[in-house]
Write a protein that binds this DNA or RNA. Sequence first.
RNA 1: CGGGGCAUAGCACAGCCUGGUAGUGCGCUCGCUUUGGGAGCGAGAGGUCGCAAGUUCGAAUCUUGCUGCCCCGACCA
Length: 437
Amino acid sequence: MRLSRYFMPTLKEDPKEAQIASHRLMLRSGMIQQSSAGIYSWLPLGHRVLKKIEQIVREEQDKAGAIEILMPTIQSADLWRESNRYDDYGKEMLRIEDRHGRDMLYGPTNEELVTDIFRSHVKSYKDLPLNLYHIQWKFRDEVRPRFGVMRGREFLMKDAYSFDLDYEGAKIAYNRMFVAYLKTYARMGLKAIPLRADTGPIGGDLSHEFIILADTGESEVFYHKDILSLETPEDKDYSADELQAIVDKWTGYYAAADEMHDPDNCPIAKEDLVSRRGIEVGHIFHFGQKYSEPFGASVAGPDGKETLVSMGSYGIGVSRLAGGIIEACHDENGIIWPEAVAPFKVGLINLKSGDDACDAACEDFYGKLQNAGVEVLYDDTRERAGGKFATMDLIGLPWQVTVGPRGLKNGVFEVKNRASGEKEELSAEAALQKLVG
RNA sequence: CGGGGCAUAGCACAGCCUGGUAGUGCGCUCGCUUUGGGAGCGAGAGGUCGCAAGUUCGAAUCUUGCUGCCCCGACCA
């Protein structure tokens, strides 16, 4: 992409409404634009990041055996009356009336809808286990939206719903998601910690939330220091026992959110305990028959008896992760994208657009990167050098390639790693080699 | 939902107290000079001062109401 043809409205100064790093940087780098409180448009740069996160989540869900569907944002109140949540959910639910006076709502979650789909079509235990997920916009009318996309009212979320014949099956489904989550966050360059969670209004007796560490996190977490050195599960099909072993290993270490942590009764030694701030980026629940019962979601078991299915739900805040990753990965100059979610892998800086030698070298290199399938943002504008460097640092692409008259005299480009700040001078061929693959 | 704050050009702000029809920096346009980490000079464009009522000869400025946004707390992917 040529910057001169792109739409990337960056800001030199901090918008005053943005207090935390990710919000500030997302606005300054032109990723998002606020539409109203807690509701954002995603501009090209932000949209690319959102899609990358979404795709990683999708791939890991698919690998874990979940099947993608897409349910609507607008739901009928009738379904929510069946589960009795229409009245219970409170003002967080955005209620809408259609022209016929029917009560509708903008879905804050999809247990009702997915259970309705399930009960309409699944009648036999032979069709289980089943795990359906979608990645869809949700709306929760938060009293006080804040922190940009981290705590918006409208947000993109992956939510999966598992259906099993019994608790044993449901637990396997739960563990499968647990492991998929560890892999998902690791792919994004994040270290996520599973915390035993309070099950809250959704209810249930098996639940974990996944948090990533960031100094600006919303809540304090306490954990055993060794949990950070645990190995991420491999990319393979684990047996039920293997899944359980992985979950046991990860949950064997102490990890607790502020409200669950009692400093006087902490089971681990002080020197092993670490306290940092965290951002919740996922939450998984087993809730058994909480919805299958009111919805009559049952299947015929092997014995011919109708059995209410045992369910769980598994959320990942996709749009929140965009902010969360920035909270975890930035410095005073801007964002430092992990490569897997970066909007582009390489930023190519032409220090002297209009200069024949610089233009030719850049055009050639730009074409080669593109042919090699490397996503590159080519700054071909007439902006001054300082401005170009500052913008590249701000938007945080993992690699910067600087092409200027000075380097060209010696036949070299400067290749800079945004994360480490390391720079090296390489020939065009060597630079290409380094950036491809 | 309790408490507080803010609203003036695309962005950040001054002006308001003590009423007289709007200004600074950045950004934008044009020209010249510059050119390896957010340049300099010159010339421009851009504002129903959030909305509505009131007070007044006259309101960005004073009064009232409304709306929007932000912050602290209680609550959440």
